[in-house]
Design a protein around this nucleic acid. Structure first.
Length: 765
DNA sequence: GCAAGGTC
């Protein structure tokens, strides 16, 4: 009989595929690897009876690495690693798998690759093909293309077998080689140098990776934005009205806020002169709140982090388990568009008996499921959706994630929520204020999607042209606030946006930079850099090669895509990239003093050369493992190096009493006693065009001062004289007593009766 | 002792 060897990416996939295709009649036997079994059954393929033999790998079975000649960190100049020979060979872990596949393929005439339908899956497929082809002349080789492990999907794949795509696999080879060369060269170089100069433990690897560094870069960038943030005061006017029936309404200023006190005060006074409000517009319109779009991996990780407080890593682990149990579709997908060939009806039907959302699923069935789609497709996998209702027990975490996926799915195929939005526009002394309210008419998807809130706000009834006196009119001072540190969800979104890592690895890179002591998650579940992370990013940033920025990786990603689509030649891309990074590496080693300087800021000046002997390690503590490791040299007999305190945060704008001595041209001295550098704000915002001073010594200190604050002739002027307390003293309160409009009011400017500030004769002066 | 990518 014709025998067909089928190889899946993992044992569970082989097992499920065999079970589905054989209708549960496959027999199982052992292979050489105890994790990768062999499943056999008879099948009708190519219109003839065949024996199907299903087995699997466990992801990649090969790895590339340098040869033994370059293994020694001490004796290999890292720059050589850009050109050193690289071998690709079966990993030790996969030797048993290799043995099984080699033994089985010689008995077969056909090989079908069932690895996942993404770039890495294609490459893993070629690892298998390259093992098999030399062993069997005339071996027929096919690729099964499937996007979920279901009977329909698997049988469809078998009737539509295709050829494996060499270009896609070649793109992965390019990526592997570059990641290895660049990662190894920079990691060895910086680890050895920083261990030697700054006394890091000889076990502490200070790694560089094309994904881990940009990830760290995002965290550091946000941290610095926050530390360097200079708060700006602003002023705004708030209006409140309580109707005779006792209903409240708050109005917000159409100008939102002003960054200068004086103009705001002028407007406020004008309002207080004529505080009669007139209703200019009353609008009511339909408002929809959109149901969520079909779920892709990144969105799932972000949602689980926000709503379930589950890390990305954990989320992916659990999703993988749910997938293996056949409960959800493949969890690594960039697609958020449901392909038309997926029949949603039975998928919704599967959920119709659940006590929590069954009734909702039934409603969807009655109306017909209509998905809200996003804009992306990876042409490999559908959006994440439930494929089956669980028949056994799930763990707590599995339950929570399954629930999220089901609720998201049902919400996605249901209807947007509908409401009526009312907006009221009033005018007081020609200044406009708005209030808006919302009444929800149909909750629709909100009934199942407990993670979204849409709050109702009822407004009092107002008639067009109605007038009233507000209960309260206040001028309020506020301050702009610094951006928050990144949450995991923010970080994943940034990685996704810049093409750092894959759906499957975002979470791992985030874990890696914590292991490396570059960053940590604080008690508010936000990421803050550690000293080591700050020192590294700052040092490399000063060199200007953007190694901690996402662009290099994004550019490579584009070239890989071009290889996949046949627009670029893999060998050319590889050569070009290696040349580029070799140059960057050489330039880095020339300017390495910049990294040393940054590290010195955080770890004190470099120690003596030659390096002190490595600290004696305490003996292992027996069956319960090693005692906790101290990160650096504090457990030896030598006195610990004096630690320099962390540099102070950058100065806020100078207050008057802090004004510094200036030179003859009015330029102040910075904290390192150099003439400060004058710059102008270029960024759009309240201070655009305003001049300021920074450290004149290559930003050595954190000196900052506004020019108009620092220059004595101008000191004391400007908006900043209005502190919090003073601003509060401008708060006024006015009751809408009826006396007010019968009384003659006085002009706010000249204090004469008979006119107001706007038509005050003194304004004509 | 390096990377990132699969998966266990």
């Amino acid at each position: 009989m014709h025998r067909v060897l089928n190889v899946a990416e993992k044992n569970d996939a082989a097992k499920s595929l065999a079970r589905l295709l054989s209708k549960n009649s496959a027999s199982m036997r052992e292979g050489f690897s105890r994790f990768n079994k062999i499943y056999e059954f008879n099948y009708q393929l190519f219109n003839q009876p065949v024996q199907m033999i299903f087995t699997s790998v466990s992801g990649h079975i090969m790895n590339c690495d340098f040869t033994a000649a370059h293994n020694s960190w001490a004796q290999t100049d890292p720059v050589i690693l850009f050109d050193a020979t690289i071998q690709k060979k079966v990993t030790d872990r996969a030797l048993d798998i290799e043995k099984t596949i080699k033994r089985e393929v010689v008995k077969c005439q056909t090989l079908i690759i069932w690895t996942d339908c993404d770039r890495e899956g294609e490459n893993i497929g070629f690892e298998v093909i390259n093992l098999c082809r030399p062993l069997k002349a005339n071996l027929k080789i096919y690729r099964a293309r499937f996007s979920e492990i279901t009977f329909n999907s698997a049988t469809r794949a078998l009737t539509n077998l295709i050829q494996p795509d060499e270009r896609v696999s070649a793109a992965v080879d390019v990526r592997q080689e570059l990641d290895l060369r660049i990662g190894a060269a920079f990691t060895r170089f910086q680890t050895l140098r920083l261990q030697r100069l700054f006394g890091f433990d000889s076990k502490q690897v200070i790694s560089y990776g094309s994904c881990q560094f940009p990830t760290l870069g995002f965290i550091v960038e946000r941290y610095l934005q926050r530390v360097n943030f200079i708060s700006e005061p602003f002023w705004k006017i708030a209006v409140e009205h309580q109707t005779e029936a006792g209903e409240f309404c708050e109005f917000t200023w159409e100008r939102n806020r002003l960054f200068e006190h004086q103009p705001c005060l002028v407007i406020y006074d004008m309002i207080m002169d004529e505080p009669l409000a007139k209703v200019m517009d009353v609008k009511s319109k339909n408002k929809s709140k959109w149901r969520p779009a079909a779920l892709d991996t990144v969105e799932m990780e972000k949602l689980a982090s926000r709503k379930l407080r589950m890390t990305g890593k954990k989320t992916m682990e659990i999703a993988e388990k749910l997938y293996m149990k056949g409960l959800i579709s493949y969890p690594r997908t960039e697609t958020n568009i449901f392909p038309t060939e997926i029949n949603l009806q039975p998928l919704v039907q599967n959920q119709a008996n659940d006590p929590r959302w069954g009734a909702f699923a039934q409603r969807v069935l009655n109306e017909g499921p209509r998905p809200r789609n996003g804009k992306n497709t990876d042409k490999a996998h559908p959006p994440i959706h439930p494929t089956r209702y669980p028949d056994g027990q799930l763990t707590d975490d599995e339950n929570k994630l399954y629930e999220l996926i089901v609720r998201h799915f049902l919400a996605c195929v249901s209807k947007d929520a509908q409401g009526d939005e009312t907006t009221i526009k009033i005018s007081i002394a020609n200044e406009n204020f708005n209030a808006s309210g919302l009444i929800i008419r149909e909750r629709n998807y909100l009934d199942v999607y407990v993670y979204d809130k849409w709050s109702e706000k009822e407004l009092p009834h107002y008639e067009l042209n109605q007038t009233f006196y507000p209960t309260k009119i206040e001028m309020i001072q506020g301050e702009t606030t610094a951006p928050q540190l990144l949450t995991e969800s923010d970080l994943i979104a940034l990685m996704e946006k810049h093409g750092i890592g894959t759906d499957a690895t975002h979470a791992e890179h985030i874990a890696k930079i914590q292991d490396r002591l570059y960053t940590k998650m604080n008690s508010e579940r936000r990421f803050e850099p550690e000293k080591l992370g700050l020192g590294l990013c700052e040092g490399y940033d000063k060199m200007g090669h953007a190694l901690s920025k996402p662009h290099l990786r994004a550019e490579l990603e584009n070239q890989l895509k071009a290889i996949c689509e046949g627009r670029a030649n893999p060998a050319d891309v590889l050569r070009e990239q290696i040349d580029k990074y070799r140059q960057v590496f050489i330039a880095t080693s020339v300017q390495i003093q910049k990294l040393d300087d940054s590290m010195t800021k955080y770890f004190g000046p470099p120690g003596q050369n030659p390096p002190p002997p490595p600290p004696p390690r305490p003996p292992p503590s027996g069956p319960f493992g090693d005692p906790p490791q101290t990160p650096r040299n504090n457990n030896n007999n030598q006195p610990a190096r004096p630690q320099q305190p962390r540099p102070p945060p950058p100065a806020r704008p100078l207050q008057q009493e802090q004004i510094r001595p200036t030179n003859s041209t009015g330029v102040p001295k910075c904290n390192c006693d150099a003439d400060a550098k004058e710059l102008t704000v270029k960024k759009d915002g309240p201070n655009k065009g305003r001049s300021f001073f920074r450290c004149g010594n290559n930003d050595n200190c954190n000196f900052f001062a506004w020019k108009d604050d620092a220059t004595p002739s101008n000191a004391g002027g400007g908006q900043r004289q209005f502190g919090d307390n003073q601003a509060n003293s401008f708060r006024k309160r006015r009751q809408s007593d009826n006396d007010d409009d019968t009384k003659q009011r006085k002009c706010g400017l000249c204090k004469q009766a008979g006119h107001t500030r706007r038509n005050c004769p003194s304004l004509n002066l």
